[in-house]
């Protein structure tokens, strides 16, 4: 028996979220006295692959098969299913991102295994597995019991501490029997070098209080000094001041950075749903009664157009 994590790569590199999965999976494996298996699909250099061992993987399975160059639900599901069966995985742990969510749901049917998304902590019990997860977009938690032998989880980002544990992992190439793809990636546009909102530890976010998309310069400056990603509230993306890919909230992206700075955001309940798991929230708003202050750790009441440049200067 084993714990299986899927180590997704981005152009051949892993991100810290993958190491978070390993640290989390390792704890479960230690508890159960089982092995932690990492599976990597697609072209990843040997050194990078072996980095998985630094976070407790006992075995690293990989495949450089070109079928994994772009994501396809059926093909990746087939690979995960075959690996899970080979290693008798009892817990399968995935990233809580688009790929992870899709794979979890497909695998759940393929393996007849209960799927719990957005887990926020280690299981509370192991047979059966019960685990705490977010529901109602973070407005509440539920304790969920898995009724099957195998449990599939996605781990809510930033919920578990990454811990380096060197292990002498073996690596082994897998040969999968893969179906013919029914989908085909025709083209791909990726803006390189841009810090992704969902990866960012620090986020600077603007709301309607900024009055116009032209006023984003000062937020860009602040984000630049901090090395933070930019985000916005729903009215801002609805007005077209910023791209909807930056919209954070219940119907946009759900994020959990270490620091979230909300500038000119009143803090509607839908917005708060998207940021409530942030470690530290700073609110800058001219309205002392704005609900954002109820969820913020630090607040400044005042004119954002004066405070933000001062904050940027103070950080320099």
């Amino acid at each position: 028996m084993s714990v299986l994590i899927y180590a997704q790569n981005w152009d051949g590199k892993f991100k810290k979220s993958v190491y978070e999965l390993l640290s989390y999976g390792k704890k479960i494996a230690e508890n159960n006295g089982t092995e932690l298996i990492a599976l990597s699909l697609g072209n990843v250099e040997k050194d990078e692959l072996e980095s998985l061992a630094n976070y407790g993987a006992d075995k690293i399975y990989f495949s450089n098969n070109s079928a994994f160059e772009s994501f396809d639900n059926e093909i990746f599901t087939a690979a995960l299913k075959q690996t899970a069966e080979k290693v008798a995985a009892k817990e399968i742990i995935l990233l809580h991102n688009n790929e992870g969510k899709a794979l979890g749901s497909h695998l759940s049917v393929a393996l007849k295994a209960g799927f719990v998304s957005a887990a926020v902590a280690l299981p509370e019990s192991y047979s059966p597995i019960t685990i705490k997860k977010k529901v109602f977009t973070g407005k509440a938690f539920a304790h969920v019991k898995v009724n099957s032998d195998i449990a599939i989880l996605t781990l809510s980002p930033n919920s578990f501490e990454i811990k380096e544990i060197a292990s002498a992992a073996t690596t082994e190439e897998m040969n999968f029997t893969l179906p013919t793809a029914k989908t085909k990636v025709e083209s791909r546009e990726v803006s390189k070098g841009k810090l992704l909102l969902t990866d960012a530890d620090l986020v600077v976010s603007g709301g309607r209080g900024l009055k116009s998309g032209e006023n984003w310069g000062m937020l860009e400056d602040l984000a630049g000094v901090l090395g933070a990603a930019l985000a916005c509230s729903r009215p801002v993306s609805d007005e077209g001041w910023r791209s909807h890919t930056e919209h954070v909230g219940q119907t946009g992206k759900i994020i959990a950075p270490n620091l979230y700075i909300a500038v000119g955001i009143s803090g509607a309940i839908q917005h708060v749903g998207g940021i409530s798991s942030s470690k530290c929230i700073v609110a800058i708003n001219k309205d002392p009664d704005a609900p954002i202050f109820e969820v913020a750790d630090y607040g400044i009441v005042g004119d954002a157009f004066k405070i933000v440049p001062e904050l940027t200067a103070a950080l320099k």
């Binding site: 019960t130 407005k139 304790h143 009724n147 109820e294 607040g299």
Partner: peptide, 22 residues
């Protein structure tokens, strides 16, 4: 049912927001 909800829990109330002078 492959899963079932045993119980719900509300998030802990946030501590008071510390205000900083503008």
């Amino acid at each position: 049912n492959l899963t079932e909800i045993l119980k719900f829990e509300m998030p802990q109330a946030k501590g008071k927001c510390k205000m900083v002078d503008a």
